[in-house]
Design a protein around this nucleic acid. Structure first.
Lengths: 176, 176
DNA sequence: TGACGATCGTTGTCAAGGTCAACAATATGC
DNA sequence: GCATATTGTTGACCTTGACAACGATCGTCA
């Protein structure tokens, strides 16, 4: 039931019916059937890039997560594994900066990956504060599987959008 | 300090230096100066649309939030206000479905907006379960200000990307 | 008419992310 | 040597998202 009206100036009772009939002419005329649902206007949202970027992000991440859930690798974990694998001995601050995530968040991501035996935090000989991040052998193996699955996901994306449209998106978004 | 090694198979001490010198030849040769920082490869991430969508989303939302923080309107709140304002008498389930958010989350969003006196949950005369959502007069006023600020944000986006590139993005992302 | 299943708004809980402040250890610059 | 900056870490808080459950109401169909 719609019981919680919160503290508000709404006065239910006699006024409510009148207010509703003024406010909802469309629905009153259409018998409120589910099958005829009138189109809902997005109005100003149609001009906002951020709105569509968010929807796209939800779709893409959802498909990515579904595709890699068999090996239990999230998008964030995947990005950590890829960049660590391609740049041996990276420090955590460098990795966090290139991925655009907080150092504090990276610490927890790495904890999990290290517990699973995928990454190592070796002490840096040049700088006692740093860790030199490397993938373990199992880490490299898992990364290879992850890349294969991820490219399958990307292929699916290509089919959904069309190859040239996907490429245009990649180029346009690279500037952020 | 890099003290927490967690439970791991890492053995610090004699092995560490050797492992590091194998692993970090670049940094050893370059005297570890900040000014010469070597480029960090994104590797496979360069082919992943999701990675760039996420970065774009962070940038765009950040700019949007900064632009509207003066009137305390988040992106989610903005989308609720816009669609409610354009579709009088909408039910919460319909609104949640069109915005792609959970009914449960919308309840809390509306609570906040109703506490601020911006939206009303009128009882629906046709269906006792539903609420007919409407903007209050202050809600409409605030929405107008919000739209003005949001279009300023969008203009800034246009300058950053170039107008035609922004339009291409809008079209390409609309399919999600 | 009455019973049954579906829907609506709501609440609670849990996990994942982002943000921020603080800290000890270490490095750098003067 | 000393002040300052950086690194990794921890803790706290807040926002989202996801999911289950619930009472109230609707629709349907026997």
């Amino acid at each position: 039931m719609a019981k919680a009206i919160i503290k508000s100036s709404l006065k239910p009772g006699s006024r409510s019916k009148m207010a509703d009939s003024r406010v909802l002419p469309r629905r009153n005329l259409q018998t409120a059937r589910r099958s005829v649902r009138p189109p809902i206007a997005l109005d100003a949202l149609n001009d906002h890039l951020g709105y569509f970027i968010r929807r796209a992000q939800i779709w893409v991440f959802g498909d990515f997560i579904r595709t890699l859930k068999g090996i239990d690798v999230s998008p964030a974990q995947y990005s950590v594994l890829v960049v660590t694998g391609a740049n041996n001995g990276l420090s955590q601050a460098e990795l966090a900066a290139t991925l655009g995530i907080e150092r504090a968040r990276l610490v927890r991501l790495l904890n999990r990956l290290q517990e699973r035996g995928l990454v190592q935090r070796l002490p840096s000989s040049a700088d006692g504060r740093r860790h030199a991040l490397t993938l373990t052998a199992p880490g490299r193996t898992l990364l290879a599987r992850a890349k294969a699955l991820a490219s399958r996901h990307e292929k699916r994306l290509s089919e959904k959008l069309g190859g040239e449209r996907r490429k245009a998106l990649l180029d346009a978004l690279r500037d952020f």
